[in-house]
Amino acid sequence: MRPIAEGDLPRLARLDEDVFAEHAYPFFVLRQLYDVHGEHLLVLDSEDEGELLGYVLVGTQADRNRSWILGLGIDRRSRGRGFGRQLMAEALRRLRADGVGEVRLTVEPANTAAVELYASLGFTHLDHRENYFGPGTSRLVMVLPLRP
Score class of each variant (00 low, 15 high):
M1G: 04
R2H: 05
I4M: 09
A5D: 08
A5Y: 02
G7P: 07
G7S: 11
D8W: 11
L9I: 14
R11G: 06
R14V: 08
E17M: 11
D18N: 08
F20N: 13
A21G: 12
H23R: 14
H23Q: 14
H23T: 06
Y25K: 06
P26M: 06
R31N: 06
Q32K: 13
V36W: 09
H37Q: 03
E39S: 14
L42A: 02
L42M: 08
L42I: 03
D45V: 01
D45P: 14
S46F: 04
E47N: 10
D48E: 15
D48M: 08
E49H: 14
E49P: 04
E51D: 14
L53T: 00
L57Y: 00
Q61L: 10
R64L: 13
R66H: 05
I69F: 02
L70R: 13
G73W: 04
I74E: 09
D75Q: 09
R79V: 03
R81N: 05
G84L: 14
R85F: 01
Q86L: 15
A89L: 12
L92C: 00
R93F: 03
L95M: 11
A97Q: 14
V100E: 04
V100Q: 00
V107W: 05
V107R: 05
A114Y: 00
L117C: 11
H125M: 15
H128G: 01
F133W: 05
P135Q: 04
G136L: 00
S138F: 00
S138D: 15
V141N: 08
M142P: 02
M142T: 01
V143C: 05
R147A: 09
